[in-house]
Design a binder for these strands. Structure first.
Length: 284
DNA sequence: AAAAGAAGCAACCGCCACGTA
DNA sequence: CTACGTGGCGGTTGCTTCTTT
């Protein structure tokens, strides 16, 4: 791309975990101006990171519409099936799991699903397998496979399935916030200070402990990884809109593969104007 | 209560594809 | 055509947290 970031000399880039301040800077910047050329984002946002790091942080953590927490059984089955069809194409899988990132899916696979599959394989069966091919990622994509050749999955059964799971998941997204099951809540990790801060100072902490059914705003803020109170984005306009509307619209917008199906901006044109960003954030 | 091991997760690294000069 | 910059992706690492002993 003809994107001249900056002239040399190259600055020393920070590494490691992102601080709350860095997150804030990146989030504010991208929400305001969009990312455009990632290599220029850290410069303009006043971050000592490289563009790649910013991009990754945004995509995996700060991007609106992210759905964090335990994978549902439906999502799990989707991943298993997609893995059978696609192999280790995590980003493609992520397109069919709204609110999930490729990194998240990949981690989930390596830490849990892979073992589960291997165990099932060891017993010589896998009841959830619609196709009978091996789940082994290394041998499931022969050189002459359609995927390698840059084609869409030709199997109609597969396509139907993908459409189905995509639709199903889209409908099921808010369910994680309705589940009384504690295990379905996102686990608070060391890096989730933003949300924690907000819980600690508001009644939302109670919602966290007791369930989210009666506190949609909490679910909303949690999904975004930051509290409503702190974010100018919400102060400016989203707070004017029904939380659930925005919640839904963001998930609808998130999935590139199904973006065409969701042109209904029920939450109003605010969403377009407020989200002054491009490519993978808003698909219009 | 403390230590060791396992699991979960965020982020880095290296490679590749693509666009531009 | 070549070199370079950038975005994107998958593999891997290493830190943090949880669980077990």
């Amino acid at each position: 791309m003809g994107c001249k970031s900056s002239d040399k000399p190259k600055p020393k880039h920070r590494k490691g975990l992102w601080s709350p301040e860095e997150d804030q800077r990146l989030r504010n910047y991208v929400l305001k101006y969009g990312h455009g050329c990632w290599s220029s984002v850290p410069i303009n946002a006043g971050l000592q990171r490289n563009g790649k790091s910013c991009r990754l942080r945004w995509i995996n953590y700060l991007r609106p519409g992210l759905k964090r927490g335990t994978f549902s059984t439906q999502e799990e089955e989707t991943i298993l099936t997609l893995h059978r069809l696609l192999g280790n194409k995590w980003s493609q899988m992520a397109h069919h799991l709204p609110g999930r990132t490729d990194n998240e899916i990949k981690n989930y696979w390596h830490s849990y699903l892979k073992k589960k599959v291997m165990k099932a394989e060891g017993h010589g069966s896998n009841s959830t397998t619609p196709c009978s091919s091996s789940p082994n990622s290394h041998n499931m994509q022969p050189l002459d496979s359609p995927i390698k050749a840059g084609m869409q999955i030709p199997c109609y059964e597969s396509l139907e399935f993908l459409e189905k799971v995509s639709t199903d998941l889209d409908q099921s997204i808010p369910q994680m916030f309705q589940s009384p099951n504690r295990s379905s809540f996102p686990k608070i990790m060391f890096a989730e200070w933003l949300s924690l801060d907000s819980f600690a100072t508001t009644s939302e902490a109670d919602a966290c402990r007791g369930g989210l059914q009666e506190n949609p705003s909490f679910g909303h803020s949690f999904v975004h990884g930051y509290p409503l109170d702190e974010d100018p984005f919400y102060h400016n306009s989203i707070s004017e809109v029904s939380a659930s509307d925005v919640f839904m619209s963001q998930f609808k917008l998130h999935d590139q593969s199904t973006a065409n199906e969701f042109i209904d901006f029920s939450s109003g044109d605010d969403v377009c104007s407020v989200f002054n960003m491009n490519s993978d954030i808003i698909y219009i």
